[in-house]
Amino acid sequence: MSIIIKDLHAKIGDTEILKGVNLEIPKGEVHAIMGINGSGKSTLSKVIAGHDDYQVTSGTIEMDGQDILDMDVDERSREGVFLAFQYPMEIPGVSNANFIRAALNARLPEGEELDAVAYYKELYAKMDGLEMDRKFTARAVNEGFSGGEKKRNEILQMAMLEPKYCILDETDSGLDIDALKIVSRGVNSLRTEDRGFLIITHYQRLLNYIKPDVVHVMYDGQIIKSGGPELALELEEQGYEQFKPASV
């Protein structure tokens, strides 16, 4: 059981961003993708989630044996893909509690609804784990949240929706060290045998807290090197230059 990406090419407008990505994220593993700005890391996360702006020109993405490229964004989500956004959107007037509840209700058969008491019990428990004040249930989604609060809110949603595969797009950006620890603890608590993670980051720092099983280096729309956690340290010390293909 895994997400398997084969020879994935994708473009935005006329610009090709992904130029043949190959990647397998098995359940139970944490994979990290590192790379410089513009290498295609964030694009890869959006293409997996199904963002309309990107056109897949060739290649495949399979999740647990199922082709997901023809699925809409929301269908992929309900099938188990979760993307923690680098810049979570604000939704004015929609309370956090109602937003998450609507997302959970969307996973139930038509006509069924969540039990409100059980829902709040679970929500509060997970907020406590992320050290989120309960006033965040009534506040509009991400509106007026600090950077750290927004990222915690992403992890809260992830915890509530219980996805099969979690993609974290630069979740560490804009976090101070305390928030980074809390977010990492939240992610680590979700690490199970039946859940896979793809963590996109610039810096090795996050990987001190969320230990990856595999580290990939992305460059110019391709994964050019993969290795163990030591690869992240190597990158941190020596920079990305050494991995540039000789021809570039």
């Binding site: 929301d74 979760f82 939704i91």
Partner: peptide
Amino acid sequence: FYMQQRGLSEAQAMSLAVNG
């Protein structure tokens, strides 16, 4: 896109945004 990524259909997402 954000709302749909959480599993809401486009129409549900739009309704929620308008109600908000």
